[in-house]
Structures are given as C-alpha cells and as structure tokens.
Design a binder for these strands. Structure first.
Length: 292
DNA sequence: CACTTGACCTGTCCGC
DNA sequence: TGCGGACAGGTCAAGT
C-alpha cells in the first residue's frame, strides 16, 4: 500500500474535496472485505450523511460522517481513493485518462454525492477494504489498539523508539520498523531509505545497535517522510492521490528500486538488492555493513 | 510472548 | 509467442 506519506497526501486532498458533501449512494462492487454484513448500516448511516472530516491514523484513512459513523479505509498494496468532480476533463487535460475512465475494471466501492461528484475506491489486488464503524468504536478496533506512535508527532522521539524496540531485540531492524505496533506508517520504501540514511544494514539485529544510532534513525524516518510529503508521496506502480495524480518522491530516493545504480555517497559502488524480513531490500554494500 | 512464514489477490516481468 | 515462477508499496493467521 501506500505508506504514511501517501495516505497523508490523500487525506489532505480529500479534506479539501469532500468535506461538507452529502452522500447520495454507497455501493461495494465485488469487494467482499468491504461493508461486511452491514449493507443495512450503509443505507441507514451513510446515505444522506454529510462528510464531517477526513482523518488518518497510521496507514488507515478515517472519513467521519454527520451520523457519528466513520468510514475506515485501508488501501493495502494497490488501493486508490480518487475523487472525480461533477465535470470531467476533456481536451488533453493531463489527468484526463485516469479520471475519465472511472469507474473502472478495479473499482470496488463507489460513493456518489448529491452534487453528482464521486469517490472511487479502486484496488486491483483486493487486499484493501472500506468498512463502516460507529465513530466512538474506531479506537476499539484491534489494529487501533495495537498500533504504535505516529512518527511525525513531536512526541515520537529517539527515546520513545528505543524503548519500544526493547521487545523486538532479536529481530532485524528492518522487520522492527516495519512492525506497525512499534511505530506507525513505515513501509518498505521508507524503511530502506531511512536505514540507508543512517548507514544501518537492514539485517542488523536490533539488540546490537547503539542507542545513538536509534536516535539518528528516528530523525531519519521523520526526514524521509517529510521529504516525501513535500513531493506528494511515492508512485511505484499504482499510487495516485485523491485527484488521480502520481507522487514524485521516488525521483529523490537514494536506494529504493535503484539496484545497479551508484550509491550517492559512493560514486563507484552499486546499490544491491537482497531479501530481508521477507521483503525486497535495497542497500549500499559499502556504507551499510551489518553489525554482529 | 517473540519470531518467521505463508496466505490473501491480480498483474507484470523475466528467463527458458 | 507461450509458459512458469518470482515478485509487487501491507497486514493477518498460524506455525515454531
């Protein structure tokens, strides 16, 4: 899925586009994980509701409705949430193809507003979902109970990360920062980028890493995510923002998907791809040496 | 409990 | 060109 910077980019976009709109129709199409067993709730608590706010926690989007129900949305690997205004594009507009083809083959949920604009949830692999919960119950969802701190919060410090890593001392640092119960929002792209930034090999066991490096890693995670946010997130394949636009951060990535290219710190060394924590992993073999 | 691996899906790419 | 296998930005459940 989109990671934290991508989900946050969508949140900011939707907050501008759909707050105040009234839902006319909501429908899941061939999306068994969406609105499970509660089409009646969809009809009662969504239709006629006004969108009150769009929030985010970790990689989950929360769309609050005036009925005190909340749409809880996880995009997983290939989910998109794209808003299409009542007037579609024509005449060579750059977003014409993406927008005008919706709903498409991979559209799984359609939300129509009373002004004839639409919000489409598209998801090729169908890992993602859109669910409806009473707003007050959202904090009680299992994932919300377990998920770790927001990395961009001022409360998320090196001391906090170090403390939270104490129960993951025997795993690799990459597996640890991908663990959403340690901290929220890091996925494969920002794990590789932040570990390169502090010259940590992703397979290094957490327990052997000096506290000072964990503090540096904390700063690196924040910096990488802020940089990505400033470029509208990362588009590897599927990601688009709420208006159907791709993100540009990968142009600035140092290692992710750059195997065979040179390390920015070592002009004669090629970036390598390996497998750590079951995920494709990109490193500079000279600046990132595993600690044992 | 901590840790690893496979499953969930569909598409694409790479090697034979 | 066709086919099989590996892999893809994320979690879960089930195994050790």
């Amino acid at each position: 899925m989109p990671e934290l910077p991508e989900v946050e980019t969508i949140r900011v976009g939707l907050n501008k586009l759909i707050v105040g709109k009234i839902i006319k129709r909501a429908q899941a199409i061939d999306s068994p994980k969406s609105f499970p067993n509660n089409q009646n709730d969809v009809n009662v608590f969504m239709v006629g509701a006004t969108v009150a706010a769009v929030r985010r926690r970790a990689k989950v989007l929360l769309i609050d409705l005036s009925t005190n129900y909340t749409m809880v949305i996880h995009l997983k690997m290939t989910g998109q949430l794209v808003y299409v205004g009542a007037e579609r594009f024509g005449g060579g507009h750059p977003d014409e193809d993406l927008i005008n083809d919706l709903p498409g083959r991979f559209t799984r949920v359609v939300i129509e507003f009373t002004d004839s604009s639409h919000l489409y949830f598209n998801d090729m692999r169908r890992f993602g979902w859109v669910k409806l919960y009473p707003t007050l119950e959202v904090p009680n969802i299992n994932f919300m109970q377990k998920v770790g701190p927001e990395p961009l919060s001022d409360d998320f410090t090196g001391a906090v990360l170090f403390e939270r890593l104490q129960r993951r001392k025997n795993t690799t640092i990459k597996a640890a920062i991908l663990d959403q119960t340690v901290l929220a929002g890091v996925g494969n792209i920002y794990a590789d980028e932040s570990l390169w930034a502090v010259k940590l090999h992703p397979a290094t066991r957490v327990g052997v890493i000096p506290k000072s490096i964990i503090y540096s890693l904390t700063s690196a995670i924040k910096e990488v995510m802020l940089l990505s946010l400033s470029h509208g997130g990362s588009t590897d394949k599927n990601y688009v923002d709420a208006e159907g636009k791709k993100g540009n951060y990968l142009k600035f990535a140092n290692v992710f998907r750059r195997e065979g290219q040179t390390c920015p710190r070592h002009p004669s060394v090629l970036i390598e791809k390996l497998r750590v924590a079951g995920r494709g992993t990109h490193i500079c073999p000279v600046c990132q040496v595993e600690m044992v």
